[in-house]
Nucleic acid binder design. Structure first.
Lengths: 211, 211, 211, 211
DNA sequence: CATGAATGAGCGTTCATTCAT
DNA sequence: AATGAATGAACGCTCATTCAT
């Protein structure tokens, strides 16, 4: 939990929360991740948080509001406000090769997910049945982001370092295989050893290299 | 649904079902896939099936029994009884190269999943929170299966066609990336065009080829 | 069961019953006695009888009708049609002493109850909550019966063999203590050994003898 | 009801109950006694108590818990914790004759049952079908209790005041006939007039006196 | 007569939510 | 803000009863 909360606490969502309210969020993350949102009761969450059930509703309005309070920071964190990062972060530098590029993109996401496994599980379970949320995720990537990312692809391809596919197909393979690898590991509660991480990134790199 | 039922009807699980009982299964697949098992009510399923609610319980015992009736055929179909298939099927032939091997293994699963998208969604959602079911899936792969699969890996590796990793790491990448690709497509209700299928299999092949 | 049925079969209620219908009655006696009428299901009775559930309703109308078919013979048997017995049976002879009188009255009822333990249990449980049935029981004892019984009491009292109480009080003690003794034994599924039977009858005799 | 509650309120089981929770117990005693536990619905109990049905379950867990809350005080009251009462109460004094002894033992129970008729009815009906509860009743009489009671019997017998039977047979007659008398009275909702009480105790005394 | 699939009212129970304290 | 008793709609489920075969 400490890890999960560490992340959530960096989000301004939780500024001004009382100790009890934070305890509710902590407990909710535990319970939602263990049994799924629909199978969790506000009674159990309140008990685990050591507070009265009413507190959940005075702060979060309803059970759904509590879920949103957990999910929204994920939306903001894993898909950080791309507009602000455009000039900095992932695209400010020039990658000398495909492997370095993949390593940064995937590695960063893996670190995040590893540190926030329970919150991520809640988020993903919600995304599966929630079309609105799915569209919100897509909406977090503004036009400009794709331009920069695809620009990076184009650059690598011109230098003969990237397979000759549609940019969107490249992106799909990158996201899908990385998500499969990370999700698979999480499903069995296992970390990916550093050596294996290297192997995985090597493999994705080969996959996206020209034939 | 037509597609889903087509599959399920080939499974002997549904032999002897009355029309109403089949209608319940059809409706349940619809509702479970749309809202998740926990958020679905037997009342809604019965209404959609045009049937009295009691029928669900006289046939399936309880709500969970209805889920099992949907899930068990998946277990039998996507992970067929490997013990009996050892000499036949996927391992009877000799693959001339890695790509052919991957193409058969992955392609076959993709076809199945595409035809049974809703049932698969139900199955996967259940696996995430159900440790028992996860172990059942694992148990469907007996020792002998791994020996044959890994023997195939060893053979390909000796012929210089497979990356020099642990067999289990190879397998993990293969399953995880394929699952990510197929799951990602299903999440957005999209088929993978034949051309893209080729690209994906090419990519996985490169990923698992020696450096 | 054999014993219970032996009794019930002597009642003309069961004349013309098919084998299946008799099997239903047998099964119902078992189940009602074990779990109580309200906690027994027609499904279980039908299963135990090896017949389809519908048979219960085509023969007995409803579940209550099945209970009545079991209870009515008890009403007729344990409280036999007193009018017909007036000249015969219990009051035709002259008892030489109180003990002999009690021995016949109580002994006969005990034998009946021992042979029909399960049916009696069903009957008693029903009587507790069923005012109508209670009144039916009372109604089985016509005016003439009391006259004869109380006449017997008066006779014994005049001969100095019976306590100087109201006849109705004598009767109450007689019935209540005998019922308590027999019921207590049945509650723990135990027979009363012949030696103990003698002791009990001796005791009741002393209880009702003049001080 | 007032009477019943008077008793139950003296039991610490009901300390800390809210008004509504007490109303539930009151209503449950009414309904259970009138129709039997199995035929009573929580809906009816809640309605009669003027309370939402959910309150039953938040306080008592389930319907059975409500029955237990009614039954347990009976267990504690009618069969008080004998271990602690060994030196006091019924056995501390020396009875000068059998009648006095019976009068205390039976009279005390009769007073209790008369004041708690409905609760007793519920208790007895439950005992008939509940083997566990029957054993609990038996378990409330520890070894030491029997020793004292049988010691009292032995003492009376040596003084020529008690019939020459097994102690357990004496006890059985005592309990069974008293229970039959009290139960019979309760079955027809009638009190036993003081004069009749005297007669009954006299009768039991004679029954257990030497021939 | 016999069957058992089908029905649906009613049950015990859960739980998000409200609100007086 | 904090409490938890109270609420009642909705749930999964049971079971007496019906009826087409």
């Amino acid at each position: 939990m400490a890890q999960d909360l560490e992340l959530l606490l960096h989000d301004n969502t939780f500024a001004g929360y009382t100790d009890k309210q934070l305890a509710i969020v902590e407990a909710a993350v535990d319970v939602f991740a263990a049994k799924g949102y629909a199978n969790s009761s506000t009674h159990e969450i309140a008990k685990r948080a050591g507070v009265a059930e009413g507190n959940i509703f005075s702060k979060f309005g309803n059970k759904r509001g509590l879920l949103d309070a957990i999910i929204n920071p994920v939306l903001r964190s894993i898909f950080p406000d791309m507009v602000h990062n455009l000039q900095t972060d992932e695209f400010q530098r020039h990658y000398t090769n495909l492997r370095e590029f993949i390593s940064v993109l995937v590695g960063r996401r893996y670190e995040f997910m590893k540190s926030n496994a329970r919150v991520m599980k809640i988020f993903i379970a919600e995304v599966v049945y929630n079309t609105d949320l799915r569209q919100k995720v897509v909406a977090r990537f503004p036009e400009g982001y794709w331009q920069l990312l695809f620009g990076e692809f184009d650059d690598l391809r011109q230098r003969g370092m990237l397979v000759d596919w549609d940019n969107s197909t490249v992106m799909f393979y990158l996201i899908a295989s990385a998500a499969g690898i990370i999700g698979g590991a999480m499903l069995f509660n296992q970390e990916i050893a550093p050596h294996t991480q290297t192997q995985m990134i090597d493999a994705i790199t080969r996959a996206l290299s020209p034939a």
